[in-house]
Design a protein around this nucleic acid. Structure first.
Lengths: 202, 202
DNA sequence: CCCGGCTTCTGACATTTGTCATGTACGTCG
DNA sequence: CGACGTACATGACAAATGTCAGAAGCCGGG
């Protein structure tokens, strides 16, 4: 009884190397590979794998949104995320999307294989260090609107533009930004964006 | 006559997988692995490899600074950079540091092996797409001071702080920021920072 | 039902910015 | 030498931003 795996990562080098390493495991077989979010979805539909191993950052659609779609379309397919830069908020979003495994790329291949089996068995696995980060970072103190406005401010747009895009008055936008900045203990909104990014709250 | 390779990448998964794939090549042997910049240097000193394959982003010291040191200490050792997010400026800095190969992680393992051989033979290899990006992005239009001030502004610090850290008057800082912003065609300095980052000019 | 929190707005104010004109000093290059 | 570009500064003004007070509506919990 082999365990069928889908591998999605935009870095060809990594993906190929990973596939080779997983192929060494007796009970695992990589049935499909994908380099982008949409491609991963198409491959999953075509091959119905047991476990989908997704990179967090991919062109098209990120790992979490792929996982969400997969959860709806292929309930029998377990999903897990592998990532280089694990920000706490991503972990939260991933778990909310029904992802059962979340590991950094710093783990070894044997460990990854074990985790794939764990996930397939219906259990969950979250990297202890990432979990600790997520717990210590805690929940976002920002309200929904504050987060939304901060997101619009992320690329350095002036208040007028943010107001237009968020369909709010400029005064309201400034109030939200102001409260977000004070909640995050930042110097100004740009620093606030940076902090929220680090914590994965945007 | 085997070709001795040093592999440095902070992601254990990638590094191990890569080592396994390169081991399949008859003429290549991975003599050392490292997860950080300083570790890479120590390993290089201990094993004197023919080619050092360095990740651009590593804890401690990045690939380019490792390459610079290596160039001085072990002139016989060729260096090459492998990276996920290749920004044009990095390529320039890398070439200036005497790096002979610069490839994204999207290449296949066979290709990487070929490139390692190319580099060892004394030739250079730069990924065509990255090269095109670098050429189209061109040289930084910023003067040394403009770039310096922009860098201090990178984390969203207010002008007063930048002025202090750069030992300039606030007016001067604003002038530099202003000219940088107009040179980059940005809305404001924060957008300018983003653009300069993308182009690898910071 | 009333209180508190979230959302939304307005208006006013201080501070921080971006921009411009203008000036000095120091190199280099013709 | 004189012109030119770069580095650095000042001062002044307009625009953007940050902060505060106040006020209205909505919703959920006690």
């Amino acid at each position: 009884m082999t365990l069928r795996v889908l591998l999605a990562d935009d870095e060809h080098l990594i993906r190929g190397a990973l596939a080779a390493l997983l192929a060494l495991e007796e009970d695992l077989v990589v049935v499909a590979e994908a380099a982008t979010g949409p491609e991963a979805l198409a491959m999953a539909r075509a091959h119905a794998p047991d476990v989908a191993v997704l990179d967090l950052q991919m062109p098209g659609a990120d790992g979490v949104s792929v996982a969400t779609t997969l959860r709806a379309e292929l309930p029998g397919c377990r999903t897990m995320i592998v990532t280089s830069h694990g920000r706490p908020g991503h972990l939260k979003r991933a778990l909310a999307a029904g992802v059962r495994g979340f590991v950094p790329k710093t783990v070894s291949a044997q460990r990854l294989a074990e985790i794939i089996r764990t996930v397939h068995a219906g259990n969950r696995y979250v990297d202890p260090e990432l979990a600790a980060d997520a717990i210590s970072a805690g929940d976002s103190p920002l309200t929904a609107r504050e987060a939304e406005v901060l997101e619009f401010a992320a690329d350095g747009a002036p208040v007028a533009e943010i107001a237009e895009r968020a369909a709010l008055s400029q005064g309201t936008v400034r109030n939200y930004l102001s409260s977000a900045v004070s909640k995050l203990g930042a110097e100004n909104r740009h620093a606030a964006v940076r902090i929220a990014r680090e914590r994965g709250w945007v």
